[in-house]
Simulated assay, not measured.
Amino acid sequence: MQGRNMTRWRDPKKDPRQEKKSNLITPQGFDRLQGIHDHLSRIKRPQLSAKVGEAAALGDRSENADYTYNKKELNRVIARIRYLRKRLDELQVVDRLPADTGKVYFGAYVTLEDDDGQTLEVRIVGHDETDTEKRWISVDAPLAKAMLGKALDDDVVVMAPGGESHYIVTEIQYRDRDSAT
Rank of each mutant, 00 (worst) to 15 (best):
R4C: 10
T7Q: 14
R8Y: 13
R8W: 14
W9Q: 14
K13M: 13
K14I: 11
K21V: 00
I25F: 05
L33C: 03
I36H: 09
H37G: 03
H39V: 14
S49Q: 14
A50I: 10
G53T: 07
G53S: 02
G59S: 08
D60R: 02
N64S: 02
A65G: 07
D66Y: 09
Y69C: 09
L74K: 00
R80F: 12
I81A: 04
R82T: 09
R82F: 08
R85E: 14
V93N: 08
P98A: 03
A99T: 12
K103M: 14
V104C: 03
G107K: 05
G107W: 04
A108V: 01
Y109N: 13
Y109F: 09
V110N: 02
D114K: 04
T119H: 05
R123M: 10
G126D: 04
H127G: 05
E129C: 03
K134D: 12
R135M: 12
V139P: 01
A141L: 15
K145I: 14
A146I: 00
G149Y: 05
A151T: 14
L152R: 03
D153F: 04
D153Q: 00
D155G: 01
V156P: 00
V157W: 08
V158E: 00
G162H: 03
V169H: 05
V169R: 13
